[in-house]
Design a protein around this nucleic acid. Structure first.
Length: 521
RNA sequence: GGCUCCGUGGCCAAGUGGCUAAGGCAACGGAUUGCAAAUCCGUCAUCGUCGGUUCGACUCCGACCGGAGCCUCCA
């Protein structure tokens, strides 16, 4: 079954066909680096990182570009507020962005072009557009001429007439059409400025992406991604200016990810038959609360770094991928904690595997290409048949517009299969059927192969080693020994007291037939 | 007002024109355990409402109700 991708341009899933066979060029609109990233900024990178992993696994050679917008009104304003230069602010926030990507295990980005380093390329595009009649200078600015662009609006499904009807904002004096947007903005004194044929100024918002995508990936790219909020006007305008400039299709597939939303917004509770919301006062309050809860642009949205202090980044990544990328994600601490609980089961399985097989799940060697991933054979046949079936289902989900939610479901099924296998053959006990361990390893290897495409379970968790030099474990072994003696003497009151007190300290004991294990949490 | 999109079990969330509507969290029953924990086995939905198309719809179309986003340089 071929890979299918939902294309915003056609509003449907299409068979995936690249411009150049075997290669994929991918451009994702990156951040304007004016404030610390919040969780919403990580959605795109995590999703497209996963997409790249899957495409690479599927045999494509992928080049992925994410731009850094380091000149913009927001930057100028913020820098002024903080009393620092635009460059200093941009540098600081870019580093913040990079740190967050690393923590989120997003490592597939090949190029990070900076807007300020591509002014020349932008000016070239603007000059070409003027030459072709798609743009006109006006008092030091340059505007794109929307009316000249026959299919303007094709991405977001708007027509110029509609936009005219909806606009009541005053338009810049000489603009020929209210929808015309700035390619070049003449600068006011004190603002960052570059020389240009139209006077000193800085680039408009959309032109940077056109310029950098063209320079690094060529006139026609395969995948252009970004948040749904960028579809209009950003992507629409980017598309318009790029195609008007080159006369070629700009991007084959436009992919838009859903936006992060804070949960607890009024109206969500009550199931729709709640009459309380009908009173105007409540409606107003609800609206206000929604604004406050809205993540995008909200000053109150927690930074990613702050979030990392409360949740494991792997959990956050898994959480983001458990929902389809085109759906809005309902974000809350509770949701993430729930995901954390779900992941516990995997970590338990990895520990069990290490006890059973004597080597770490994380050190298993796996196929990194679909073509290298062989169909599994072995005994028991039913078990191997199931493994192959799960693998098939997983790839089928991913082939269907990168349905990571479905793929995640398969991972849980695989976990269950492996746990059942361990249970059936008593592998985690003194009476283990040792001959079955290689079969377990085959299943664990499959689990790792599939998980790696999502960018999870890549390496073992750091065991808070910084604050513990082994003293705690030594102490725990002592306590466990004392408790074991008590149990042997049927002094369960003492044994239970120890266990309960440890529970209060967030330490859990597991009595197995041959030993007692402990863990935090 | 215009343009997109969504409404699946207590909560979250995949999916499909007809064969058992994934999975997670929670809950419940059983196995196991001194009791727990972990694990295993099992139970728990007719898919917002009303119409229509169809041999057949949760899946397609329409209306309605409810929700979200964009139309204001937010990923």
């Amino acid at each position: 079954m071929p890979l299918r991708v939902y294309n915003t341009l056609s509003r449907q899933k299409e068979d995936f066909q690249t411009v150049e066979s075997g290669k994929v060029s991918m451009y994702l609109c990156g951040p304007t680096v004016y404030k610390p990233a919040h969780i919403g900024h990580m959605v795109g990178p995590v999703i497209f990182d996963t997409i790249k992993r899957y495409l690479t696994y599927s045999g494509y050679n992928v080049t992925w570009v994410v731009n850094i917008t380091d000149v913009d009104d927001k930057l100028i304003n913020r820098a002024n507020e903080k009393g620092i230069t635009v460059e200093a602010l941009a540098k600081e926030m870019t580093q913040d962005y990079f740190d967050n990507l690393k923590t989120m295990a997003v490592d597939g980005i090949d190029h990070f072009p900076y807007a300020t380093q591509h002014i020349k390329e932008m000016q070239e595009i603007i000059a070409t557009l003027i030459e072709k009649g798609f743009a006109y200078p006006l008092d030091g600015d340059v505007y794109f001429n929307c009316t000249r662009d026959e299919d303007y609006g094709k991405l977001s499904g708007r027509s110029l007439e509609q936009m005219l009807a909806g606009t009541r904002a005053e338009t810049h004096g000489g603009k020929r059409h209210p929808a015309d947007f700035a390619l070049w903005k003449g600068s006011k004194p004190g603002e960052p400025a570059w020389e240009s044929p139209w006077g000193p100024g800085r680039p408009g918002w959309h032109i940077e992406c056109s310029a950098m995508a063209k320079k690094i990936l060529g006139d026609s790219i395969d995948i252009h991604g970004g948040g749904l909020d960028l579809m209009f006007p950003h992507h629409e305008n980017e598309l318009a200016q790029s195609e008007s400039c080159t006369g070629k299709p700009f991007a084959r597939y436009w992919m838009h990810n859903g936006l992060m939303q804070a949960s607890g917004t009024p109206g969500k509770v009550g199931g729709g038959h709640d009459k309380q919301g009908d009173r105007p006062a409540d409606l107003a309050a609800a609206k206000e609360a929604q604004e406050a809860n809205k993540l995008a642009g909200s000053k109150g949205a927690a930074s990613v770094k702050e979030l990392f202090s409360r949740h494991d980044p792997e959990t956050i990544r898994f959480f983001l991928l458990a929902t389809h990328y085109r759906s809005p994600i309902d974000f809350s601490d509770e949701r993430i904690s729930e995901t954390g609980k779900a992941l516990e089961g995997f970590y338990r399985l990895f520990e069990t595997y290490e006890r059973v097989a004597g080597n770490s799940f994380y050190s298993l060697k796996v196929a990194t290409k679909r073509s290298e991933s062989a169909v599994l054979h072995g005994e028991p046949a039913a078990y191997f048949h199931e493994l192959n079936e799960l693998r098939r289902r997983y790839l089928e989900s991913m082939d269907d517009d990168f349905n990571t939610g479905g793929a995640v479901g398969v991972l849980f099924d695989l976990r269950k299969t492996l746990n059942a296998f361990i249970s059936d053959h008593k592998l985690d006990s003194a009476s283990a059927e040792k001959g079955q361990v290689p079969s377990l390893t085959a299943g664990m290897t499959l689990l790792k192969e599939l998980a790696l495409m999502l960018g999870v379970f890549r390496e073992a968790k750091q065991k808070a080693a910084s604050t513990d030099d082994g003293t705690l474990d030594g102490l725990m072994q002592l306590v466990i020994q004392i408790r074991a003696d008590a149990r042997k003497n049927k002094n369960f009151a003492v044994a239970d007291l120890i266990r309960n007190k440890l529970n209060e300290l967030k330490i859990t004991l597991e009595d197995r037939t041959d030993q007692t294990l402990w863990r935090k949490g």
